[in-house]
């Protein structure tokens, strides 16, 4: 069975370590905050200017002065801080953020990422994605293995305009967990019951498949 979006988020949440400052992108990455494992203490940053971001507010308690980078209403947790957007990107550029999770349209087997523009379609902008991928040491991509047309999103080279080069470390898709190595994608785990052939077929870039590939536990 391929993973659901929530299961992808849950698998990524297993990567969290106590003490991590984490930036979550829009889409599946946002869901990661729902699955922080018991006993793990992390703080979430949103690049518009908050550290210590908590859950969405209860109905009736929304505050227009408290939003995340996706413009959603949020709440602060005890210990939170607010700051301007330059300081916020200083945290990112200065490598104070330990983990960045973001979505992608394509990832190459060298770790290049494309997630902001499709030629011929309306361009909305890169937001903070280029800053994040250029500076983060630890980038996990959360995405479907193939696009809605069934084409592989894990490629030998990105066909779409790039957001950043040689930056992605790990990818969690509905089919697999893969690392980016100097020899291409390395299959780390597979979704429960998904045959290795299916993963191989859905991966257009170079892929290394070890003899033993454990199933994802979610």
């Amino acid at each position: 069975m391929a993973l659901t979006k929530d299961q992808i988020a849950k698998r990524i949440a297993q990567e969290l370590k106590s003490g991590d400052y984490v930036n979550l992108g829009i889409g599946i990455p946002t869901l990661v905050a729902n699955y922080v494992p018991e006993g793990i203490e992390v703080e979430f940053q949103s690049e518009n200017g908050i550290l210590g971001m908590g859950p969405f507010p209860k109905a009736g308690e929304e505050d227009p002065d408290l939003i995340n980078a996706g413009k959603q209403t949020i709440t602060p947790l005890p210990g939170a801080s607010y700051f301007d957007t330059a300081l916020s990107f200083g945290m990112i550029r200065g490598k104070y953020i330990d983990l960045t999770v973001l979505g992608a349209m394509e990832v190459s087997d060298q770790g290049d990422i494309a997630n902001w523009k499709i030629p011929g379609k309306l361009v909305k902008g890169m937001g903070g994605a280029m800053d994040l991928v250029a500076s983060s040491e630890n980038i996990i991509v959360a995405m479907m293995h193939t696009n809605p047309k069934g084409e592989s999103k894990l490629r030998s080279a990105c066909s779409l305009p790039l957001t950043g080069v040689r930056c992605v470390k790990r990818i969690v898709t509905n089919l697999a967990v893969l690392d980016v190595t100097s020899d291409g994608f390395l299959l780390i785990e597979r979704a429960p019951g998904v045959p290795l052939d299916e993963i191989k077929k859905a991966t257009q870039g170079r892929i290394l498949i070890p003899n033993q590939v454990p199933e994802i536990q979610v």
Partner: peptide, 11 residues
Amino acid sequence: KRIERRTVQNT
């Protein structure tokens, strides 16, 4: 002070 994406907890 309009809210662009009013998002609340599921109850």
